[in-house]
Design a protein around this nucleic acid. Structure first.
Lengths: 149, 149
DNA sequence: CTTATTTACTATGCATGCATAATATTTTTT
DNA sequence: AAAAAATATTATGCATGCATAGTAAATAAG
């Protein structure tokens, strides 16, 4: 098998995970992003949407659309935040709580399957390398090209 | 720092790489997918597009749209394949060859930066784990949920 | 306290991924 | 050879990501 580049492996793996999650979610007329959001929302009290983005690693603008879709599906309600007139508090509906449990089970199953197939040490290395790549990019240590105008 | 799940790390890392590649490509009015395609196209002879998809890990349908955009940008020409009336052969234009070299340099720079920051052994482990996850998913070892109708 | 800045969204548009469907050809069956 | 199945490609639609721009409210500056 030909040696693949780092970016190829990252892309291929994430795409496979994405596809799997979307297929699982699709069985209940949901999606991957909705599932991730559900998991990040506190099931017991209103969650400020400002807290969700960082937790999920999602930009506010992407999150906003996801929440809109989720509200239309009847999974959440967006209520005004009494402490901040700009913000909203996200509340799960009963249906949302049910779907949250489902989403958690899908993620858990994936994590368990990986944990069975990969040693704890290798998994640690995997996460550490991923983290290093993230840092490299965030530190702008990769960017060198000049802007062509 | 809170322990992150495997899928979180995968997603965050790939999103960061995507953003970086798109920013680099954007400096020359290009995109990440176009760059990957350019790299996969043989600069010297017509490449059947059937060969590109598997090489890049891209579905035929996604590739088709990318190639259309690339043709509109003047990077490639799609010529009928004399050996198969259904297929096309992709040829790089001189501009396409120039952009191909640029794309390769961006990917190379990323690979070098990662190689400097991560030991060869860790990188090997990283790729091996990624491969294992891919296999797990492809073997459908994750899917267990029932379809709700 | 009025003005300027920052913050929290929301709306849109483009890029890119997959799914599905349609079309044209080739290959396989019979 | 004619019919059936497979293959190559395109067109579209939806999901999700980022970028940009606009609005409203809170905070900081003066």
């Amino acid at each position: 098998m030909k040696e693949k580049t780092i970016d190829y492996m990252l892309r291929a793996t994430w795409m496979a995970v994405t596809k799997m999650y979307n297929e699982e979610a699709g069985k209940k007329d949901s999606t991957m992003a909705t599932g991730f959001a559900l998991i990040s929302i506190d099931p017991d009290e209103g969650t400020p949407s400002t807290a969700l983005g960082p937790k999920m690693g999602m930009e506010a603008t992407s999150l906003s659309r996801t929440l809109k879709n989720m509200e239309e599906k009847g999974l959440i309600e967006r209520k005004p935040n009494p402490l901040d007139g700009r913000g909203v508090l996200i509340h799960l509906t009963p249906f949302g709580k049910e779907m949250r449990a489902f989403s958690k089970s899908v993620v858990l199953r994936f994590d368990e399957a990986v944990s069975e197939a990969v040693s704890e040490e290798d998994l640690k290395t995997f996460k550490r390398v991923a983290h290093t790549i993230l840092e490299l990019i965030n530190a702008k240590k990769i960017y060198t090209t000049e802007k062509i105008t």
